[in-house]
Structures are given as structure tokens and as C-alpha cells.
């Protein structure tokens, strides 16, 4: 029982890390209907920028602010160069464009900052501590707190600010929002900037766990089943989906792994998501779209 709890909690907490990546996806998908395949590349780009700036002697907060500024600039460039010319194209063209963007960002990040694996120490000790006999990782708890904080900030931002309201309007109906005079391009730039900031946070946390390296770009793929479970358009869904995926994949690895031969972590979340889709095609918290397939 104790072992089960330990695996479960470890899974839940690592799921939070997936949620962080999924969050960036949801933000962009919600506001612009673009399935941003490049989120993982943005995570890599952000983390590499931060580490490299720090290496070049910037203080920690300076590096943080500078990389935040760079992510904002990147969002503006992406909106201007990639999204604006592709307005009104079918979703698959936009998906393809973000796949192209992935190559661009990966090349850019590693071309500018080098492709050596870099360590990142956030100064949070990664020693497990004991809660009634169950070992819990301190670092994971910290990550969970950060994720919770981010979601709270985003929720408040969406709910109570003028820009947030514009975002929700755009998410609801592009054309209606446009005809009300909401500047679509500004909204997109804001959303990509927010996604960039989320990518920076995710990059720092993942980077200090795995080292800042190319593999960061691949964690996007772990966020996809999270999205399916939670629904593409729900911030809360990203969190809950992340928890579900994290917990189930660890439990599956521990309990089913020995039977099936190990390494099932890679596909188990997808199959879970697939089965889930058969029951509830719009995800846990996704908007119900009434169309027959």
C-alpha cells in the first residue's frame, strides 16, 4: 500500500510537469485554433537561452528577465512572420507551419547557444522527504507549486483583465470578436507571448531535472495525451490530464511493466487517451462540439 502511494504520488507530481507543457498548447489552441507543435521547441529554446545567458555572467534574475524578453520578442516575430500570412488557412497548414517552426527553433537555439548538454541548478534540493512513511520528492512539490501558481495567474488574467476578456472572445468566435473591434493580431501575439513564458517556466523545471538538452524538445510528445484527456481548450483540463497521465503511466510501468516487458511508459498514455476518446471525444473539460463524425 505504501509502495502504491509512493508510486501514485510520484506519478502525480511528475504529471504536473507534463501539465506545464500542455498548458502552453492549450493557451495557443484556445485563442487561435493553432495546434502548436513547436511548444516543445519553445521549451528547449527558452531553457537554452536562460542557461547560456547565465553562463555568460548575467545574474539569475537578469537572465530570467532577459530570456522572458527574448521569448516575448520571439512571439511577436512568430505572429508577424508565420501566423499573419497564414490567416484563414486550414488547420493542417497551420499545424505544418508549426512543425516547420519546430525545425527553425531547434536549429536557432542550438546554432546560437551550442548543442552541448548543460546542467541547470535552480538551487532546490532534490532530496525526498518522509511524509508518514511515504517518500515525496521536494523538487516535484516545488514544481507542483509553480504550476499551481501559474494556473492561478492565468485564470485570473483570463477572468478579470481586459486583454483576458478579449482572449476569451477570440477563443469563442474569431469573426464575432473581429467585428467587435478586437484586434486579432494583438491577441495572438499576447497568447504566443504567454505560451512563451509558460515554455520558459517549463524549460527551467524540466531543464533542471534532465539537463538542458535537445531531449527537452521531445517532451512535447508527452503533453499530447494530456491534451486529449483534458480537452484541447481547457486550462483546468491540462492540469487534470497531466495528473492522470503522470499517475497512470507510473502505475502502469510498475504494475503492468513486468508483465508486458517494460518501456510501456512511452505509449501507455496514448492508448489511455485513445480509449478515453472513444467514451468522451471532447476530453474531460473540452467544449462539446455538436457534430457527427
Amino acid at each position: 500500500m505504501q509502495f502504491f502511494l509512493e508510486v501514485l504520488i510520484g506519478g502525480l507530481l511528475s504529471g504536473v510537469m507534463y501539465s506545464l507543457v500542455a498548458l502552453g498548447f492549450v493557451l495557443i489552441f484556445k485563442a487561435s485554433g493553432v495546434f502548436n507543435f513547436a511548444q516543445g521547441a519553445m521549451v528547449l529554446f527558452a531553457a537554452l537561452t536562460f542557461v547560456s545567458l547565465e553562463e555568460r555572467g548575467l545574474p539569475r534574475w537578469g537572465a530570467l528577465l532577459a530570456s522572458l524578453a527574448i521569448m516575448l520578442g520571439l512571439a511577436l516575430v512568430i505572429e508577424r512572420v508565420v501566423l499573419r500570412p497564414l490567416v484563414n488557412q486550414p488547420a493542417i497548414s497551420l499545424l505544418m507551419a508549426t512543425i516547420g517552426l519546430t525545425f527553425c527553433l531547434e536549429g536557432l537555439a542550438q546554432g546560437v547557444w551550442g548543442s552541448v548538454v548543460k546542467g541547470l541548478d535552480l538551487g532546490i534540493p532534490d532530496v525526498p522527504f518522509d511524509v508518514k512513511g511515504v517518500l515525496v520528492s521536494q523538487f516535484d512539490l516545488f514544481a507542483a507549486a509553480i504550476a499551481g501558481f501559474l494556473v492561478a495567474v492565468l485564470a485570473l488574467f483570463f477572468q478579470y483583465t481586459r486583454v483576458g476578456r478579449a482572449l476569451r472572445a477570440v477563443a469563442d468566435d474569431h469573426q464575432a470578436a473581429l467585428s467587435l473591434g478586437i484586434p486579432l493580431q494583438t491577441v495572438w501575439a499576447v497568447v504566443w507571448a504567454a505560451a512563451g513564458a509558460v515554455a520558459l517556466v517549463a524549460g527551467l523545471l524540466w531543464g533542471s531535472r534532465l539537463g538542458v538538452q535537445f531531449a527537452l524538445s521531445v517532451i512535447t510528445l508527452k503533453a499530447l495525451p494530456v491534451l486529449i484527456l483534458g480537452g484541447f481548450t481547457s486550462i483546468a483540463g491540462a492540469i487534470v490530464g497531466g495528473l492522470l497521465v503522470g499517475a497512470s503511466e507510473k502505475l502502469a510501468e510498475v504494475y503492468l511493466g513486468p508483465v508486458l516487458g517494460g518501456g510501456i511508459e512511452n505509449w501507455f498514455p496514448y492508448v489511455l487517451a485513445l480509449l478515453f476518446l472513444l467514451v468522451r471525444p471532447e476530453g474531460l473539460f473540452g467544449e462539446k462540439h455538436i457534430d457527427r463524425v
Partner: peptide, 10 residues
């Protein structure tokens, strides 16, 4: 190369 490849796709 990777950058140009991506840029060409876009």
C-alpha cells in the same frame, strides 16, 4: 540546415 529547412516549409 535545420533552420533553413523549417523556414522553407513555412
Amino acid at each position: 540546415e535545420s533552420f533553413i529547412f523549417g523556414a522553407l516549409i513555412i
